[in-house]
């Protein structure tokens, strides 16, 4: 059996108490919610925190509040199953329900939380390996080493942002409320991330994601999420395409396209989205938009599937997701793609 390293477990019952504990223990402490990302990593010795501050027991972090009109707020410790099944979310933010419902496996969705999901560690198949394996190949800079094994000349880590819900929340214009011992602030999804495989979160480590705030549902917004992975279950995305658009009749008034698992953070395709705005959607336009979105994607050989393949499919998925959202959806577009 692979076992966890030793640690002390603290179980505060309020956010404030949790924030205080994190501040008190500083670098020695880590937050844990469902543990579905952190515990496997700890078993492989990617993290060896001395102290864990558990968020599961904090009531105020759990549950989905608010309404479509005023905006829905999801407590960070709400499980992905609860998010995927919530009626308002399914109705008003179908892409989020889809993405949450596609994370790993049913059991993991019963444990994993949305807060943990947006903070999920970046992935790389040189890194998501046991201690012994990493030692044998020569540690990389993300943990215990100082070079990048995928891009040996590189001074940075290219581990891949692998959250399913992050690109969707970004495309939906969601905000996050962060709480620390020093106070709280609300930031847009975009501000949570930075494009670095190691320091992928732009928030301070002592800041707790308290909740995810969805904007008030506005007439005409539609959204879709497509996920590329080998199997219909278990597997992390090796490409995620989130598209949200506001339609007036058959004209696009507003659009956001955000790609997941193509960089160390979710990557918005602003140019591609802009090309849609004010247009009537035609197959030619979709092809053009897909090219614009897929163009900058530069996958590396550090996830499942070959990187040239992931690049090829990026184009296909963007086209399908846009078609689905803009009402041109035919045969190929479903809420999920399993290749």
């Amino acid at each position: 059996m692979i076992r966890l390293p030793a640690f002390t477990y603290l179980a505060p019952s309020t956010i404030d108490a949790a924030a205080r504990l994190v501040a008190e223990h500083g670098r020695e402490a880590m937050l844990v919610a469902g543990g579905t990302d952190l515990y496997p990593n700890m078993k492989r010795r990617q993290f060896e925190p001395k102290v864990l501050v558990g968020l599961r027991g904090i009531r105020e972090l759990r549950g989905i509040r608010g309404s479509a009109a005023g905006g829905v707020t999801i407590g960070a410790a709400t499980t992905l199953s609860a998010v995927a099944a919530h009626r308002d979310i399914v109705r008003d933010f179908p892409a989020l329900a889809t993405a949450a419902g596609l994370v790993s496996s049913p059991q993991l969705r019963n444990m994993g939380t949305i807060g943990g999901n947006v903070c999920v560690d970046t992935r790389c198949n040189y890194y998501n390996q046991s201690y012994e394996w990493r030692k044998a190949i020569g540690f990389c800079m993300k943990k215990d080493g100082d070079i990048c094994l995928v891009a040996p000349g590189s001074s940075r880590c290219w581990a891949v942002s692998s959250s399913d819900t992050a690109p969707v929340l970004w495309a939906l214009g969601a905000k996050l409320r962060l709480v620390s011992a020093e106070g709280e602030r609300t930031i847009p999804m975009a501000a949570l991330y930075q494009d670095d495989g190691i320091e992928y979160l732009a928030k301070r480590p002592d800041e707790i994601v308290a909740d995810v705030q969805l904007p008030a549902a506005v007439e005409g917004w539609r959204s879709a999420y497509l996920k590329l992975r080998r199997r219909g279950s278990f597997d992390f995305p090796v490409l995620g395409v989130a598209v949200a658009a506001r339609m007036e009749g058959d004209v696009v008034r507003d659009a956001r396209i955000v790609l997941g698992a193509v960089a160390s953070q979710p990557r918005p395709s602003e140019k591609a989205a802009a090309a849609l705005v004010g247009q009537r959607v035609t197959p030619d336009l979709i092809a053009h938009v897909a090219d614009l979105a897929a163009g900058p994607a530069k996958p590396l050989d550090n996830t499942d599937f070959s990187h040239p393949y992931r690049k090829k499919v990026t184009r296909v998925f963007v086209a399908r997701a846009v078609a689905a959202v803009c009402g041109l959806g035919d045969s190929g577009a479903t809420s999920e793609e399993v290749a």
Binding site: N125, W133, A136, R230, G232, D304, V338
Partner: peptide, 21 residues
């Protein structure tokens, strides 16, 4: 294999069909 190592020595990365496949 990758270099001298098994590339995917885990249940997640070594792909075994689920009920869905």
């Amino acid at each position: 294999f990758r270099k001298t190592l098994h590339k995917l020595p885990s249940m997640l990365d070594y792909k075994s069909p689920t009920t869905l496949e």
